[in-house]
Design a protein around this nucleic acid. Structure first.
Lengths: 158, 158
DNA sequence: CCCATAAATCTCAGCGCAGAGAATAACACA
DNA sequence: TGTGTTATTCTCTGCGCTGAGATTTATGGG
């Protein structure tokens, strides 16, 4: 492979990273604005949604699902508990672990705002038709899986 | 359009949002790890790169380019100034405004680490071949432009 | 020239997390 | 049973950034 091709490959990768970042930021702004109207952050919303669709989960499961640090999940569940939307429950099989579960109020809230959230996202993602979305899902899945699995490049010159 | 189609459209949009978020997070982790080896955050790196490729810029220009708040750009340039990588310069045409410009040290640093950064990203984005990347750029550009331009949906039920 | 408005930057308080370390409990195995 | 290792959550410090307001300067219209 010539150096020119190599540089073009790198330039293409850089461009893709920029475009991906900008698309993510723009869509995230829509999503964050929507949930903030209900006094929630995106991370809080993600927890409520996970518990809504999968039932009570161990804190560690939630943590891995929404990609937050160990301190972060404690802090987030604390906040949701203070708001009365989530409660902790002891885990009988493993006394180190605890469940997070929706309260009645939390279930009422998320079942009310989730459909609205879906409409917002459909609107924010309106730049692509269904076929384009399918294709984007396919491509982004490939990107994401590879990036998540691959180890960082060694530091050397090449 | 039937309700079933509508729900499928929304489910597809939600899935795309999740896949996009995960891909972004995974790639960002690579990029952040790379620049942090040189004591930089991604936002700091983005500023250095912008100044490297476009020369001195007004703070407001940099702010819009890297998508940070007004307080954020002040804080970031302060940090880069303390590190000796960037300096502020007065703008003779507009005495409210100021330029950010690379110092000699800043230029040396960014010209050293930028090629390395490009290699890292090419590696992290290796989940797609060149054609896939081109297609992804096209699709994400459509997504991003639409999301950036469109106003939030009104709050009503439909 | 004066005034109102807008634009560019800076100041400051505070939020949302990350990440290291502590505490507790489970597990593996001699 | 005891012992070292690992997993799970929590505590606590601090960074990176946001967003509202203050300050200074430009701009446009009487």
């Amino acid at each position: 492979m010539s150096n020119g091709d190599r540089n073009e490959e790198q330039a293409l990768a850089l461009k893709l990273w920029v475009v991906l970042s900008r698309a993510h930021a723009a869509i995230e702004a829509h999503a964050a604005a929507q949930v903030s109207r209900h006094g929630l952050t995106l991370a809080e919303f993600a927890i409520l949604e996970a518990l809504f669709h999968r039932g009570p989960m161990l804190l560690g499961e939630v943590q891995r699902r929404i990609l937050v640090s160990s301190g972060g999940i404690t802090y987030l569940v604390d906040r949701l508990e203070r708001k009365g939307l989530v409660e902790r429950r002891d885990c009988p099989e493993d006394r180190r672990a605890r469940y997070a579960a929706l309260t009645a109020g939390g279930e009422a809230l998320i079942s009310e705002i989730f459909p609205e959230h879906a409409r917002y996202l459909e609107h924010a993602l309106g730049g692509l038709d269904a076929a384009g979305k399918e294709e984007a899902v396919r491509l982004l899945r490939g990107l994401g899986l590879h990036a998540a699995e691959t180890t960082p490049l060694a530091s050397g010159a090449e």
